[in-house]
């Protein structure tokens, strides 16, 4: 997953996945619609990226109901937090490296 030279995480190369992780770092949990609104993406597009993040073990999915409507919420996992922190550190290093 990691690029051996830069330390950047391939999973976070996608803007949408990077966005999802950014939201989940600072929000305990968030539902699908709020996430869609924040990142300005289509349902299908967002769903694909969420599945990818879940498969990598970076986020947890919780399906619930509000009345009769489904309400799916997402949370970050420990592994997700760690991977994201490392990715940010790598980004910072790249900037510092050139200065």
């Amino acid at each position: 997953m990691k690029n051996p030279i830069t330390g950047l995480n391939k999973v976070f190369e996608s803007r949408i996945r990077l966005g999802v992780m950014s939201v989940l770092m600072v929000n305990e949990e968030i539902n699908f619609n709020d996430l869609k609104q924040l990142l300005q993406v289509t349902d299908g597009n967002l769903a694909t990226h969420l599945v990818n993040l879940e498969e990598n073990g970076y986020i947890k999915v919780q399906k619930g109901f509000i009345g009769k409507k489904t309400n799916t919420t997402y949370m970050i996992t420990r592994a997700g937090e760690k991977a994201f922190a490392e990715h940010i550190a790598a980004l910072e290093n790249m900037i510092k490296g050139v200065k």
Partner: peptide, 13 residues
Amino acid sequence: DLKDIRRIMERST
């Protein structure tokens, strides 16, 4: 990327 992360964190909280 870093700017984007910061902006989204701000906007989502």
